[in-house]
Design a protein around this nucleic acid. Structure first.
Lengths: 202, 202, 202, 202
DNA sequence: AATGCTCCAGCTGAGC
DNA sequence: GCTCAGCTGGAGCATT
């Protein structure tokens, strides 16, 4: 039965239906085979100590293109801040940049928005290499010399992490998911109310 | 029809079945009504300029307790760094803390890990208020005086954002989702390969 | 917190966001509570010997209105017949009726399509009662006196089933799901090919 | 990149992670391609006048093996009868057979359960051919000569349908899904209550 | 055409 | 160990 010819012209409804069904079932079989291989690969990763959930998140993030990803992350940061959910993690750079375009009108004539200037005057690969070198020398991740808002900070981090995960050592504990305890605690006090944005004690 | 009595004992299969079905359908009706109200509320939010997708993300994050949320975020940061996906956003503090417990053994005797020390000696509410005050004075978000790694940085951000969103003004543009352009571009160059961790240009 | 006024006018973005989130979380909590009760009810039914999967199917069918339900069932029958999947169950009446409107043009003047005539001249409740009476008298389901195509056949069945499930006896074995055996048989010979509609042996 | 060796031994966590991600992404790409082809095929079928929803149902039924399928269908019939949802379609043969094993104890010594006797003494292909022949001769589907309960009835139907759908004619109207009207009617009177099994008018 | 909702299958994690 | 239920993510569908 030839393909591409709209399932054989003039074949009669029942025959056409049978062909459609057969085609689709064959394709679904292929699909199931692929899914099986994906599952196996994820099981491998898990056996190596990686966290499946995080891997799935990475795959998801990589599916959207970079622009969307950044915008989404920035908006999340902003909303999180408004809800008091920053939990000690400051706004990302994309969120800062986004918030710069407007709001509390700065006096005109002030120095230009220096951070996150559009064109970097440095070599990203070099900064990353600095981070890798630092990791090799036994420096800690908090020894990152670049201050927040400096785009080089992320690059240095990236190099440090890549190096730390790349040398001969086994998968570091920090990469593994901690075991759950689940003492059946009913709620944890953080739930039940949206932060009112004014601080609990003032 | 009384509840709790195992749906009327000795009632015969058909009658029991009818009762189960009736009960469940009544409950599902209630559930559908609630879902309808949720949908309406989200529609309100959208009409006010909020991004539904981000709101959903917030709801999701708020469902997991804080500890899980932080651990997950930290692991994501670490994996992202290893994959070259930091995209200009440096590691979060939780990730840094997590990476501190091990790895490139620092020389002993060095100063203790000062950042993210377990007990804060400052008043969170006060720092948040500083950020709000700064926003009221027209300061920009990048004027945050606390350096990265300092837990006060996030608190200041939080206050600044809450203030910026709280004054009389309409919803700031930065809070809204940008319009999609969709030039039907097939791929964007970022796809197709995992970063090899060495930089593309070196 | 007043409802219906678009979440407090002029309240500032952050405050509005907080209110939206709080509202939605409250509603979701209610929804979760309902879902919990539904789950409990289904568990009860299962404990009584009913098959959860079939109950779900019933709920689903009852959600669509009668016309849709009949049309869908009829189409399924027709397609099933074309694929050789009737498995011993003949076409339902709805399918027959549907197939009557067209196709192998019968000679005009022939006797009118007597079965499934639009207006029944009998009392449905009476026929159902006949079935119930038959069940009470120990008649078997195959003793249904009405031939196929007669709309009374279904009504009699209905009464018989309702009676059989309604008397004091426990849930009959026929109502329960048989246990799975799962001999790990790889395929069962029926799979792999669509029936070619010509019979395997001719 | 060799497979089966647990993703290169001793390669360092970051490198391993990158390899896992790359592998999985490649597989997901393949999977997406297959899914695309399936979707296209279904679109073809829809364009030919088939009802996608029914096709999906057929695929689903064909996924479960024949025994499960029959048991499920029989249980559905029985529950439907108890809920007064038979809608004019009598119990299927499988349901009748299932209900025979027990229930209103028939007097022993009576004639053996003749219908659905285990070993058919007829040739299934021949009966199917009879149905096809009848269709060719312009007979209508209600001219099926076999009474309900006779296993040959389904076979004849099968042949008739296959023939009707197989001859040169275009897809018959009976095979197509009727258009929805959706006059936004709120409820249809059938909802709201489970049939009480006693008839509405008695 | 694009977006959001609904549904379902498949994956993940718990339980026996 | 496998099964099972809950759940999340993806696909179809209706809507605008």
């Amino acid at each position: 039965m030839k393909r591409g010819k709209a399932a054989a012209p003039n074949a009669g409804a029942a025959a056409m239906l049978r062909e459609f069904i057969a085609d689709i079932e064959a394709l679904e079989e292929e699909k199931a085979a692929i899914a099986e291989r994906i599952r196996a690969r994820k099981a491998d990763a898990k056996a190596c100590g990686f966290d499946t959930k995080v891997i799935n998140q990475m795959l998801k993030e990589r599916r959207m293109d970079r622009a969307d990803r950044e915008e989404f992350a920035a908006l999340c940061d902003i909303y999180r801040a408004a809800l008091g959910m920053l939990d000690g993690t400051p706004l990302g750079d994309a969120a800062r940049k986004r918030l710069m375009g407007e709001a509390p009108k700065p006096e005109e004539g002030e120095e230009a928005p220096s951070p996150a200037a559009s064109e970097p005057s440095f070599d990203p690969a070099k900064i990353r290499e600095e981070g890798m070198q630092a990791a090799r020398e036994g420096k800690r991740v908090i020894d990152n010399p670049y201050v927040a808002g400096d785009p080089r900070r992320a690059l240095w981090d990236e190099g440090w992490c890549a190096q730390t995960g790349s040398d001969g050592m086994e998968i570091p504990a920090a990469w593994r998911r901690k075991e759950k305890k689940k003492p059946k605690g009913e709620g944890d006090g953080d739930e039940g109310a949206v932060a009112d944005g004014k601080g609990e004690e003032e």
